[in-house]
């Protein structure tokens, strides 16, 4: 079981790197957005008299770009693609359990996300004077929760979409609004009030609130609602994707 997992992970990671999509969307794009925000806002405070810079305020949001790319784009597409190419059907006539196949893909996108997080941290600390205002452990805890929750959406879409076209339409409908309107790229604080209200509906907006609070060291009480949203979402989506998993 562990051996199967290890070898499949190595193999699928190689295939994913050959494909290059995730290198661009999960590794390069977050860095580009970071550079742009860094160049525009530099070390300016987030608002007059703020104790943290605009960039520090945006850091938590930027770390979710990779989560979003892997979770709602990469994960559902690879799973539905493997189903329509009958790769899952071939696995069905072997002793492997579907949980292993899904876990391998989840871990691959976790690796991309964490790599993106580390790179963002190094670049922003080195070039833009970033420092973590809150507890690093609280931030990492929040990061894992957001990752689990967003990935579970992707697992559900990949697990139950009838074919890869549908999966790719659903993935695009989830990905692009979340990328633009949840504050991951376009800063939430820069949005007009009406747009903020719409953004609040998106699960990633709630996730970003947790990451902002923990990275800036703001009171944790403000994140209870977002945390409940993340947990409920994860439980529902994981449940649905495991119950309704289809080999073909």
């Amino acid at each position: 079981m562990m051996r199967t997992f290890r070898i499949m992970l190595k193999n699928e990671m190689k295939l994913s790197l050959r494909d290059m999509n995730m290198v661009i969307f999960a590794i390069c794009i977050p860095l580009v957005v970071l550079m742009i925000l860094g160049v525009i806002y530099g070390n300016k405070p987030a608002f007059p008299d703020a104790e943290y810079t605009f960039l520090e305020q945006s850091f938590g949001a930027l770390t979710t770009i990779a989560i979003c790319a892997g979770g709602v784009m990469g994960l559902p597409l690879v799973v539905s693609n493997y189903r329509s190419r009958k790769i899952l059907k071939r696995f069905k006539v072997t002793p492997v359990s579907p949980a292993v196949i899904l876990a391998v893909q989840v871990v691959i996108y976790m690796i991309y996300s964490v790599a993106s997080l580390i790179l963002l941290y190094i670049v922003s600390a080195h070039f833009f004077g970033f420092r973590m205002g809150g507890s690093i452990f609280a931030f990492l805890g929040g990061y894992l929760l957001v990752m689990l929750s967003i990935f579970s959406i992707g697992m559900m879409v990949g697990g139950i979409a009838p074919n890869s076209q549908t999966a790719s339409v659903i993935a695009s409908l989830l990905y692009f609004p979340m990328l633009i309107f949840s504050g991951a790229t376009l800063p939430y604080e820069a949005m007009p009030g009406a747009l903020q209200k719409i953004a609040d509906i998106l699960p990633l907006t709630q996730g970003i609130k947790i990451l902002k609070a923990t990275s800036l060291g703001l009171p944790i009480e403000n994140t209870f609602v977002p945390m409940i949203v993340m947990v409920v979402l994860a439980v529902i989506c994981i449940g649905v994707s495991l119950c309704f998993f289809k080999w073909e």
Partner: peptide, 27 residues
């Protein structure tokens, strides 16, 4: 039980040895 299906079902950019290694790891 070994199975060979009629349609080819493999990942787009997979090599022969990779497909064999993964298959071997399942048993």
């Amino acid at each position: 039980v070994g199975v060979q299906f009629q349609e080819a079902n493999y990942q787009d950019k997979v090599t022969v040895v990779e497909l064999c290694q993964v298959t071997q790891s399942l048993y």
